[in-house]
Design a protein around this nucleic acid. Sequence first.
RNA 1: UGCGGGGUGGAGCAGUUGGUAGCUCGUUGGGCUCAUAACCCAAAGGUCAUCGGUUCGAGUCCGGUCCCCGCUACCA
Length: 689
Amino acid sequence: MKEPKRYLVTSALPYANGPLHIGHIAGAYLNADIFVRYLRLKGKDVAFICGSDEHGAAITLRAKKEGKTPREIVDHYHAIMKKAFEDFGIAFDEYHRTSSPEHHQMSQEIFLHLEKKGSFEVETSKQYYDEEAKQFLADRYIMGTCPNCASERAYGDQCENCGRTLSPLDLINPHSTLSGSKPVLKETSHWYLPMAHHEQWVKEYISEGKLDHEQHHDPKTWKAHVVGQCMSWIDGGLQSRAMTRDLDWGVPVPLQGAEGKVLYVWLDAPIGYITNTKVWAEKKGRNWEDYWKSDDSQVIHFIGKDNIVFHCIIFPIILKEHGGFNLPINVPANEFMNLEGDKISTSRNWAVWLHEYLQEFPGKQDEMRYVLASIMPEQKDSEFTWSDYRDRVNNELADILGNFINRVFVLMHKYYNGVVPEISGTPTQAEEDAGKQAFESYQQIGKKIEEFRFREALAEAMNIARAGNKLLTETEPWKLVKSDAAATARILRSCLNFVADAAFCLQPFLPFTSEKIREALRVNWCSWDELGQGELMQTGHTIGSLPILFEKVTDEIVGAQMAKLEASKKASQVSVVEPIKDNIDFESFQKMDIRLVKILEAEYVPKTKKLLKLTVDTGADKRTVVSGIAEHYKPEEVVGKTVLFLANLAPRAIKGIKSEGMILMAGNETLGLSIVQPEKSMNAGDTVK
RNA sequence: UGCGGGGUGGAGCAGUUGGUAGCUCGUUGGGCUCAUAACCCAAAGGUCAUCGGUUCGAGUCCGGUCCCCGCUACCA
């Protein structure tokens, strides 16, 4: 591929229904920021674009739950995220938002263009509408009686009792699971993107990197899991997808007769990349189209692995169908980051929140940037632990980098009053080696960044400091100063240049630290390509002083963060108490046969994750029950236990096994499920009243 | 369950087109003392998840099995 003139780099638009955590940062923001900062150092023309994704049903649901308006929700999180990004040094050119008028306009223009061109297929159908909740109901929000097996708990898309696939219209006595009311049928139309029409070229684009039969990119430069996931999608056949929704929060569909409809959030969100580019360009007096439509521009999307097919297949289809837009040259999706052995989870409050970190660790952005960059989930999931944070900050940042810089500053001031000495004589082998190593590292850093190997790039930058440490220890200038002034001067001047080189190369990764060092050195940086060509520190230049760059992380800090995680986990348990359900009469209660049963046998249901097949003694008979508890109890743990049981629940087939009744358990999201047992020793068959 | 990705010394990871298994941290021993008890050197430690196949030769290619992650299914 030829060198482009411009780059358009995007990071996934974060969804504005919660704050940012370190998993987000390591997934799609820090890597993009490093990449962009590097390109800028190379003197490239780059637009780095992001913004809040503020539409979609999840936000309206959350608003409803919290008694707020969607606008209040997104305003709140947009502000938190924007500030957190800024404070953390993620240097977007533009961080805009999809609820803005500019974005609505852009999305509608693109939609209209496609509509006029006939890119969509409009399908009209009758769908259930909940008059109380004032909205159309997705299939799974409707329940009713199955026409096939008469189960009363069939969903709008499928009856889980008999396994039959249904449409909501098949249900007898349908009711809305949102309000409980009886929904009415209303006609509604939606605009579908017939992706099957595009299968041919998409396949070529992903597997061969060809677009319109011309080489567009080298697919070998794409990550394996990105290509893999796309190909599996394509091979499975591309289905039409509705690009509109019946919802009152989003970008309105700009057509007659489409009142109450909005663009599907997954359509409008990536268009946000375009809007936000335009917003930025207009502020800067540039032409946004240069970045999106010009032959000599490249588009790169940084995202997490949950977004792959959208960015590699669906959005490219929209862009190509629209015409004129560049398709991404690469989509370097990262995998996920775990936290202390567990998945990061917003709902369970198991996360290190970026805005909280910034508050609790003021001035320590680079420490977190370093750690996250070191463990980015580039090829597979990775794990953040506070003890690892401590080790990396202490052993690498403080001991190797910080200490090296400190050694050099101290020696420079001690021997030369901070003035760069003149050099003479022939360098020794050790000096040559160190210089070679530093140069090699510097070269590698750029190469690795361009290959999206940020962890290796960072390690290479650290190698410059390592080379410096080695040179100092091997040549021992504190001894040499008494015997060989020329050699001492050469070595310290080299080391000082290593400090400058390291600080320079670390700019994309540790911008705050880099700047501190630059100020102390009192130099102006050159461009990236000029770095290897001469020394940054010249004869006669006087350097300033530099305080200790990195404080050690104590065990107390680690302990406090661990305690905080545990505490917030517990707090989240308390906060998710379910509201009391509507009253029922005593007769309804009496209808239920709740009793104690003894579990006689238990085994896993093959090919499932959550199911156990149990044989229980109800006192009156023995029966088989399938229970979704396998993630919480092993078969041998439940055998012999006396547990609560709902005995007169209508039988139901699960995975081909007839289940007659239901084991009752206590449960919450954090701790999972727990068997409820009688406090005294009671018998199987005893009823619960 | 289907699909995709992954399983490499104590921990975290790299291993591009098949040719003696590397890196960082940790551990052990030694050196040094300018420096944030920091730095440098050396050593120990891996049947590359597992079984079988292709090959003169496989961590690297092919097939089976197990485990982890994501989407998906199951959860009365």
